[in-house]
Amino acid sequence: MAKLFLSLHVLAAILAIGPITVAASMFPRLARTAPTPETPALLHKICRSYAYVGAAVPVLGIATGAALGVLSDAWLVVSIVLTGVAAGVLVAVILPGQSELLEPLEGGEGAVAGEEERRAAGARLAMTTGVFNLLWAAVVVLMIVRPGSTTGA
């Protein structure tokens, strides 16, 4: 059962978190330079939709950890915490930031209206997306190296 959970966990991570990291990384620049709002809106929709699918990643990860009997190992606990922080950054900062930058592009009364404000908001969003991506990179390293594990590298 552990092999099944691990396989599903890795597949979910690749198929859900991968598109979020790519779309979120592309969004700030395209929100500023795209001639029409369709492309940034599509990237935002990808991030938002895959965030729901991405919830399967920690669920399957915890199931895998339980099946392997490593739920209390430090590397897994740190991975779970970093995953929670990354999810919080996505839900609390990235998705609302994308929505805020999209509103004026789509003809709304958006809060980020002036060019200088939009540029600053885009830069903040790009920085936050970088932090989000670094959190996931740290989780991947922990999953591969597993410090303190007898089977770790």
Rank of each mutant, 00 (worst) to 15 (best):
L4N: 07
L4T: 09
F5P: 00
L6M: 14
S7E: 08
S7G: 11
S7K: 04
L8Y: 10
H9K: 03
H9S: 03
V10R: 12
I14Y: 11
A16F: 15
I17F: 05
P19A: 00
I20P: 01
T21S: 11
A23S: 07
M26G: 09
R29D: 12
L30C: 02
A31Q: 07
A31M: 14
T33H: 05
T33C: 10
T33W: 10
A34K: 03
A34R: 03
P35N: 04
E38G: 07
T39C: 13
P40D: 13
A41F: 07
A41C: 10
L42V: 04
L43W: 03
C47S: 08
R48T: 01
R48Q: 08
S49V: 13
S49N: 13
A51K: 04
A51Y: 08
Y52H: 09
A56R: 07
A56Q: 05
A56H: 02
V57E: 09
V57F: 14
V59M: 07
L60K: 04
T64S: 12
T64F: 15
G65N: 08
G65Q: 10
A66L: 15
A67Q: 08
A67Y: 10
G69D: 11
V70M: 13
L71T: 08
L71N: 06
L71A: 06
D73M: 14
A74I: 05
L76P: 00
L76I: 12
V77P: 02
I80P: 01
I80E: 15
V81N: 05
V81K: 05
L82E: 03
T83W: 15
V85K: 04
V85C: 04
A86Q: 03
A86Y: 14
A87Q: 04
G88D: 13
V89T: 07
V89M: 13
V91K: 07
V91R: 10
V91L: 12
V93Y: 06
L95D: 02
L95R: 01
L95T: 01
P96G: 00
G97I: 02
G97N: 11
G97M: 12
G97W: 01
Q98S: 03
L101F: 00
L102H: 02
E103A: 14
E103N: 03
L105P: 00
L105H: 06
G107R: 05
G108A: 13
G108S: 06
E109I: 12
E109H: 06
G110F: 00
A111G: 09
A111V: 00
A111F: 09
A111D: 03
V112L: 10
A113P: 02
G114V: 00
E115K: 10
E115W: 15
E116P: 01
E116N: 05
E117A: 14
G122C: 14
G122D: 07
A123I: 04
A126H: 06
M127N: 06
T129I: 09
T129L: 05
F132Q: 08
F132M: 13
F132T: 05
N133T: 11
L134D: 03
L134A: 10
W136E: 04
W136T: 02
A137W: 13
A138V: 09
A138N: 06
V139I: 10
V139R: 05
V140I: 14
V140H: 02
V145K: 10
P147Y: 00
P147A: 01
G148C: 09
S149P: 04
S149I: 12
T151Y: 14
A153H: 14
